[in-house]
């Protein structure tokens, strides 16, 4: 737990993280115009990435253990339904999170 070693670790992690975030700008930032294929990807990828990240959020689901994954899937379905109905981001997230907390803490008896 030496001071210098810890500081170095944090600085290396910080530098590498920044590098991953800066790569697109280092590659295309200087040019006046961005290649068409890149702007096409910029427009299309977010939809794909978000769907993939949603799966990433749910990755810990273990289908073997009955109960836990039901809570996650139920809470996601509730969130989808509320958002489809009201289109209010905060409402959907509060209701979704609250229902997950109630489910997972066993307060609903499921």
């Amino acid at each position: 737990m030496e001071f210098r070693a810890t500081l170095l670790v944090i600085l290396v992690a910080a530098g590498t993280t920044l590098l991953t975030r800066a790569i697109p700008f280092l590659l295309f930032g200087r040019k006046r115009s961005i290649p068409k294929s890149v702007s096409y990807l910029g427009a299309m990828l977010p939809h794909a990435v978000m769907a993939a990240l949603l799966v990433y959020c749910l990755k810990a689901i273990e289908f073997g253990a009955m109960g836990l994954w039901i809570h996650e899937i139920l809470a996601v379905l509730i969130t989808i339904a509320i958002h489809w109905w009201r289109r209010n981001t905060l409402l959907s997230i509060v209701v979704g999170t609250a229902s997950y907390m109630l489910l997972t803490q066993g307060l609903l008896g499921i």
């Binding site: 978000m50 997230i93 979704g96 907390m101 997972t104």
Partner: peptide, 13 residues
């Protein structure tokens, strides 16, 4: 779960 809910909302939106 707030994080999962956030991603869910964004995908729906």
């Amino acid at each position: 779960f707030a994080m999962t809910a956030l991603f869910t909302v964004i995908v729906v939106e």
